[in-house]
Design a protein around this nucleic acid. Structure first.
Ligand SMILES: [Mn+2]
Ligand SMILES: [Mn+2]
Ligand SMILES: [Zn+2]
Ligand SMILES: [Zn+2]
Lengths: 143, 143
DNA sequence: ATAATAATGATTTTCATTTTCAATTGCAAG
DNA sequence: CTTGCAATTGAAAATGAAAATCATTATTAT
């Protein structure tokens, strides 16, 4: 799904929730849709302010909250005390591996792991709704 | 390792770090060593205050930090905004599955998953130091 | 006993959110 | 095009968990 389609999904989400469309929200969402990193609120605010200095932190915060609940953004916690947001991945769910030295983030997906998780949960009588798998270590550049 | 042995490990950690032994710290550590839950600072403080009302939050905070860096406690973040501590498990590392309705926590360990994690990391050139795997869903009691 | 140094506990500070609120804006109805 | 009203905005304040501060107290080696 590209930025244009995402914007359409957002529009219809806003519609069904009885919300109103605003230029600030559209611009923040569009800016976010064009990122391909795991971006923090501060980073996104800085990016947004470059073209639209008037926009406030709270509006960025609220927009990302909206995008998250509409399923267009994913909120991630990598343990540095800051929530980071990423776009809905093109190729489905993925997990992360984070360098504890330079903070580089790589992504991976392993269907076998997902399968084993489900089995482990089932063995305990649990039904899995979602999961978090993060590996921490050193990236190739940091040995 | 039982509470007595843990206390000995703590003593020698304190020794090598040139720290001093205190009644408060001993009591907090002992209280923690006897828990078998994933306890928050507030919960531990409350438990400690029952027998020793004079002890302050900061001392509990500092003691758990000490236990964590000495390897006698493990700090966990289950996404509710509160750090929880658990005792070093008898049977090695384990992961968690958390009920999103009643917050019940179950533990599991799957060597195959751990193995696949290492392989996934290796494929990306990373070396894994530690990892976090949490499953979220419904426990048997919550359907 | 003394001196040096670590620990304590109350309090304050930090910092990332989250909420509040008055002013502004979007939009549907007339 | 107005009007009415609910939603939105941005600045500021509030929140809450974690971390730091600091005067006082306790521990330990000498
Ligand atoms: Mn990602
Ligand atoms: Mn556990
Ligand atoms: Zn690195
Ligand atoms: Zn449950």
């Amino acid at each position: 799904m590209d930025a244009v389609n995402k914007m359409e999904v957002l529009k219809s989400y806003i519609e069904t929730k009885g919300l109103k469309s605003t230029a600030q929200r559209d611009f923040i969402a569009d800016t976010f849709f064009k990122t391909n990193t795991h971006i923090s609120l501060d980073e996104l605010l800085k990016k947004v302010k470059r073209k639209t200095p008037g926009i406030g932190y709270a509006t960025v915060y609220r927009t990302m909250k909206l995008l998250t609940e509409s399923g267009l953004a994913i909120a991630r916690q990598f343990g540095d005390g800051q929530t980071r947001y990423e776009n809905l991945p093109e190729d489905g769910h993925h997990d992360h591996i984070i360098c504890i030295k330079c903070s580089k983030i790589a992504e991976f997906h392993n269907q076998k792991i997902e399968q084993l998780q489900m089995e482990a949960a089932k063995k305990l009588g649990f039904t899995v709704v979602n999961h978090k798998l993060e590996l921490y270590g050193y990236c190739p550049d940091c040995v």
